[in-house]
Design a protein around this nucleic acid. Structure first.
Length: 569
RNA sequence: GGACACGUGGCCCAGCUGGAUAAGGCGGCGGCCUCCUAAGCCGCAGAUCGCGGGUUCAAAUCCUGCCGUGUCCGCCA
């Protein structure tokens, strides 16, 4: 509770110097209390013991008696516990606060190769990235969400070759025996087009040199910025990308800009970059003329040579990525990339090279992979869960719950609620886990609508909406009244709202805010139980004001997490 | 083999810029709908914080060794 910290620090400052404590090292020790009944902020007094030659419990007691303000102070053991007074909390919480963010932030996320439909594994990037975008916006930052389109290289080359050389009948014949396209997704462009990619991969697996040569030619041309090949590539990947974006859009994920990788080859920035790299101290050349930087000289452990130019003079993916970063830095104060943990070395190399060039290093949010209980996700082995199927299943499950609980609703409303619940639950299930934690996808958890889930938060919000609808007018935020424990607890959580959002945004950790939203919903549920707004048809103005303030906070927070704030469910 | 992550009750997970009895959820057991939506609320049981050392007044949190899991170690993307 940072707003409380400010007043505590100023009064502690004089109290501490009165008893002979020097310096302000204690400011670090003053932190959130571990348990609710201990208070809001606590100061361990152990570090003062040596300096003052007294025992910590006595020091705490002495300080407690010397302090008084808008907070309660208590000394327990060697700790000094501070709690905000209820009235002070109300005054702070019911005041409207401005969001503090003011930076230009560019967040690049997803950027998946457009070679097939989204599966749950790839979706972790999109969901975490989009949540970061939303949270930064909620915080007040000006955010640009960016998708880097891989429009050159082998993967697209294979697909382009396949589309140019194989007929629909060829593809059917080659893929015979494999699981066919799910009839549900017939006509969805990513599911349709990926079949050409799969067919070509099967042909290549048989070791056909002629095909390899043709694909090689295409790839080579694309890497040298050949216009006609690049446009052929674009025609190949566009339908896949469109299908992927359709899936993302169902999850509430949208991008502001799409930047093509080839842009940096075509506009000459990659060759200009390679010329600069060649002049660096740590530059080296291999026998066949390939160029690298020896990052070992800058402290990189393990593989120290970072190749940025092939023997034939063409650039590599990472080289283009560096040019891309330099371009990105021209349009923001803060740059964030969302990457899978498999990109850690690559990101390190790019970061060190940028530093070598005097450029700033981006922040990177790494996430561990999602696997299935059966093991690693693999399109090739058919061990995948497509996002489209997950969303469909989530919606169906939600629909069956809604029909059971609210059978009286008309079918259109049931449809709206089910879609919102399904999508929100899927997102939240991924958002609430710390990004660096490995994640095993389980249907049972993804489709859980109770406990620590999106519907839990959504439900609290609809309760508040239901009250607002019954009252039918705005609340008066200046209202005051009795503050029972459940309301006090709710006010405490609300007072930490901005702290948690700030923390989440600073550290690029959406799960921190996700857990806070669960706490907020939990606290509102207790308030709802103990502090009725409407009693015998009469509105308790103060309770209504608190309820309305919470409703607003829940609503904005839900939007920040990509949870759809329904008014009824 | 080397580098980087992760390892917390039966299951999932928070806490890890060191601080007091390790916070939730699922599952289990027991309660609460004449009262603003029970997708909710209340209670009970359940933890040698992977294992061993070290630093400290204080270690789940920092250092180190080991074990387990994952990822990377391409002139691929």
């Amino acid at each position: 509770m940072e707003i409380l910290r400010n007043i505590i620090e100023s009064s502690l400052e004089s109290a501490l110097s009165d008893i002979g404590v020097q310096g302000d090292f204690w400011k670090k020790a003053l932190g959130p209390s571990r348990e609710k009944d201990q208070g809001d902020l606590s100061l361990p007094c152990f570090p003062f013991a040596k300096q003052l030659g007294k025992n910590p419990a006595d020091i705490a007691a002495e300080l407690a008696s010397a302090l008084s303000d808008d907070f309660e102070v208590a000394a327990t053991g060697g700790y000094l516990n501070f709690s905000a007074k209820s009235d002070w909390l109300v005054a702070n919480v019911l005041t409207s606060t401005k969001m503090p963010g003011s930076k230009e932030v560019l967040i690049e996320h997803t950027s998946a190769n457009p070679n097939g439909p989204f599966h749950v594994g790839r979706a972790r990037n999109a969901i975490l990235g989009d949540t970061l975008v939303r949270l930064n916006r909620l915080y007040g930052n000006n955010v640009k969400a960016e998708y880097y389109v891989d429009d050159m290289g082998k993967q697209v080359g294979v697909m382009a070759w396949s589309l140019a050389n194989l007929s629909s009948e060829d593809v059917d014949r080659i893929l015979e025996g494999n699981d066919g396209i799910n009839p549900r997704w017939k006509g969805k462009t990513d599911h349709e087009t990926v079949r050409w990619y799969q067919a070509a991969q099967l042909l290549r697996a048989d070791g056909n040199d002629e095909i390899e040569t043709e694909i090689g030619k295409l790839v080579h041309a694309s890497e040298h910025g050949d216009d006609s090949v690049l446009s052929q590539f674009e025609q190949a990947y566009k339908p896949v990308l469109d299908g992927m974006l359709e899936t993302l859009s169902r999850l509430g994920i949208k991008f502001d800009t799409f930047t093509k990788e080839s842009k940096f080859v075509v506009d000459g920035s990659v060759s200009a970059l390679m010329e600069r790299l060649e002049k660096l101290d740590i530059h080296g050349t291999a026998d066949n003329g390939a160029h690298f930087l020896d990052l070992g000289q800058r402290g990189l452990k393990g593989k120290t040579e970072f190749y940025y130019r092939r023997g034939d003079g063409s650039s590599l993916y990472a080289t283009r990525d560096i040019a891309y970063h330099m371009w990105k830095w021209q349009q923001c104060d803060e740059l964030i990339n969302v990457l899978g943990e498999d990109h850690k070395l690559q990101a390190k190399q790019v970061g060190m090279t940028l530093q070598e060039l005097g450029e700033k290093v981006p922040e990177v949010m790494f996430y561990a992979f999602i696997k299935l209980p059966e093991g690693k996700m693999s399109t090739r082995r058919g061990n995948v869960v497509f996002m489209d199927d997950l969303l469909e299943e989530a919606k169906a499950q939600a629909a069956s719950v809604v029909k059971e609980l609210r059978g009286e609703l008309d079918s259109e409303l049931i449809e709206t609620i089910s879609e919102a619940v399904g999508v929100s639950a899927v997102r939240f299930n991924i958002t609430k886990v710390s990004p660096d934690k490995g994640f095993t996808f389980r249907w049972e958890e993804a489709l859980s609508f109770e406990g620590e889930s999106a519907p839990f938060i959504m439900y609290s919000h609809t309760r508040a909406c239901s009250i607002a609808k019954r009252v039918g007018r705005d609340a008066v935020m200046e209202s005051r009244g009795e503050i029972p424990p459940a309301m006090h607890e709710l006010l405490r959580v609300m007072a930490c709202h901005l702290d948690k959002l700030g923390h989440s945004v600073r550290e690029n950790k959406p799960h921190i805010f996700a857990f806070h939203m669960l706490e907020l919903a939990t606290a509102y549920n207790s308030f709802y139980r103990d502090c009725h707004v409407i009693v015998d048809g009469v509105v308790n103005e103060f309770n209504f004001a608190v309820s309305e303030k919470t409703r607003e906070m829940l609503r904005n927070g839900m939007i920040g997490l990509g949870i759809i704030p329904l008014e009824s469910m």
